[in-house]
Lab assay of single mutants.
Amino acid sequence: MGFKLLSKLLVYLTASIMAIASPLAFSVDSSGEYPTVSEIPVGEVRLYQIADGVWSHIATQSFDGAVYPSNGLIVRDGDELLLIDTAWGAKNTAALLAEIEKQIGLPVTRAVSTHFHDDRVGGVDVLRAAGVATYASPSTRRLAEVEGNEIPTHSLEGLSSSGDAVRFGPVELFYPGAAHSTDNLIVYVPSASVLYGGCAIYELSRTSAGNVADADLAEWPTSIERIQQHYPEAQFVIPGHGLPGGLDLLKHTTNVVKAHTNRSVVE
Rank of each mutant, 00 (worst) to 15 (best):
M1T: 07
F3L: 13
K4C: 11
L5A: 07
L6P: 05
K8V: 12
L9I: 07
V11C: 13
L13I: 02
T14R: 06
T14V: 13
T14H: 05
S16D: 08
A19R: 06
A19P: 07
A25G: 11
F26G: 12
S30Q: 04
G32C: 07
G32I: 15
E33K: 09
P35T: 03
V37F: 06
S38Q: 15
S38V: 09
I40D: 09
P41H: 04
P41V: 09
G43I: 06
E44Y: 04
L47E: 01
Y48L: 10
D52N: 07
D52K: 05
D52W: 07
G53N: 04
S56Q: 04
A59H: 05
S70I: 15
G72H: 01
G72M: 00
L73D: 00
L73I: 03
L73N: 01
I74F: 06
I74L: 06
V75H: 04
R76Y: 05
D77S: 10
D79P: 03
D79M: 04
A90F: 10
A95N: 15
L96Q: 11
E99M: 10
I104W: 13
P107E: 13
A111M: 07
F116S: 14
H117Q: 00
G122H: 12
G123W: 01
G123L: 01
V124T: 04
D125T: 10
R128Q: 05
A129K: 03
A130C: 15
V132P: 01
A133K: 15
T134A: 06
Y135V: 11
Y135Q: 02
Y135A: 05
Y135C: 02
A136Q: 02
A136H: 02
P138Q: 13
P138A: 11
T140N: 02
L143G: 12
E145Y: 12
E147F: 03
G148S: 11
G148W: 06
E150R: 10
S155N: 13
E157F: 13
L159C: 10
L159N: 14
S161Q: 13
S161H: 03
S162Q: 07
D164P: 06
V166K: 13
F168Y: 05
G169R: 08
P170W: 06
V171F: 04
E172C: 08
E172Y: 05
L173V: 14
L173I: 03
Y175G: 00
D183N: 02
D183Y: 02
D183R: 00
N184R: 01
L185T: 05
V187K: 00
V189N: 05
P190V: 04
L195W: 00
L195I: 13
G198K: 00
A200I: 14
A200M: 10
T207Q: 03
G210Q: 03
V212K: 09
A213V: 12
D214K: 10
A215H: 07
A218H: 15
P221Y: 06
P221A: 08
T222A: 08
E225T: 02
R226L: 09
Q228G: 10
Y231T: 06
P239T: 13
P239V: 10
G242F: 02
G242V: 01
D248V: 07
L249D: 02
L249N: 15
L250D: 02
L250I: 05
K251S: 03
H252R: 11
H252K: 14
T253P: 02
V256M: 04
V256I: 13
V257F: 07
A259W: 07
T261N: 03
N262A: 06
V265T: 13
V266E: 13
